[in-house]
Simulated scan of single mutants.
Amino acid sequence: MTSRAELLRALARDFASAGLEAPEREARALLKAGLGLADLDLVARGEQPVADENAARLNQLAARRMAGEPLARLTGRREFWSLEFALAPDTLVPRPETETLIEAVLEVFPDRAAPLTVLDLGTGTGAILAALLSEYRNAAGLGIDRAEGAARQARENLAQLGLAERARVIVGDWASAISTRFDLVVSNPPYIPSTDIASLDVEVRVHDPLLALDGGAEGLDAYRAIAADLPRLLAGGGRAVLELGIGQEADVAGLMAASGLPADGPARRDLAGVARAIVSVTA
């Protein structure tokens, strides 16, 4: 039998040969998830043997990773805003750049004790809603997703994080079934133009749900639906914070302005410098 340390080195070598950007980090994450280990188990107990059947299973997972399956899909989990979320086939893998939305909300609503009401359109794993409820201890929220599997997973994630009493998740077509007004509307909608889907990286194109990616011919279908509904969804003084795809700031700002909710200025940029989170202004 091989030891944990030996298997870790072998996986890292394979990942490096396959051209993965962070082979040691990915090998460590896969080994920890696959064997249910903590960092200490690899550092202080690296000499412990790994059963042959477990080693074979991990090598199979590693082969899938090298073929383009995201690590998060292999482990079934992803961290966002220092919270951990389980994934489902119907959910997008939460991205670090989406944390720009949370930062934008914290900027426009600085009072962490505010009893905000939050609507998360296209909630997916529930990551955005959960992150906001974790920051605003008196807030309550509603998540909506068109995919039943995503809504189910969001409910489970919110419950696991101890947020179920302040959150509900329903299945719906954007806000078509909602008549309530909210202090905050957030969304990371599908924004990839349909013709661009085929050229996406295999990690996204093959392993993320099409429903969460395809934004229609121009990538703006979801924004049009959301912008049209925002005037009736936002309470006085409320804000909408929407994630943007690359190069979409002007188009989305135009849609929001046409609905009477202009942007409050330039979109907030993510760590890569991409205009990522646009914030509306309301009366």
Rank of each mutant, 00 (worst) to 15 (best):
R78D: 05
M1L: 15
L129E: 00
A164R: 06
A263Y: 04
A18D: 10
S134Q: 13
R205H: 07
A258E: 11
A139T: 04
P266W: 07
L119F: 03
E21M: 10
A159Y: 02
A225P: 02
R205Q: 15
E218D: 15
A86M: 07
R57E: 15
R9G: 01
G34T: 04
L213W: 03
L106N: 08
Q48T: 14
S179W: 09
R78E: 11
D39Y: 07
L261M: 14
W81D: 14
A147K: 00
V105C: 14
L121Y: 07
G238D: 08
A104F: 10
I192H: 06
D111I: 10
V185E: 13
S194C: 09
L230T: 13
A225T: 09
Y136G: 06
G36A: 08
S82W: 07
L161V: 05
A250M: 04
V185Q: 13
G124R: 00
G236V: 09
G68T: 06
D214Y: 06
V50F: 04
Y191V: 00
A250Q: 13
G68R: 01
A250K: 08
V279H: 10
A12G: 12
A51K: 15
V50L: 07
G254Q: 08
S3N: 12
G143R: 00
P89W: 05
E156A: 14
I178E: 15
G237D: 13
A235C: 05
G245W: 05
D229H: 03
V241Q: 02
D183C: 07
E79T: 11
N188V: 04
A263R: 01
T100R: 08
D229S: 14
L35C: 11
S17H: 12
S259D: 06
L116T: 05
G19K: 08
G143K: 02
R137I: 05
A240F: 02
G143M: 04
R232S: 09
V171L: 10
D14A: 15
A27H: 09
S82G: 07
D111L: 09
L184Y: 00
A131Y: 01
A5T: 12
A56M: 06
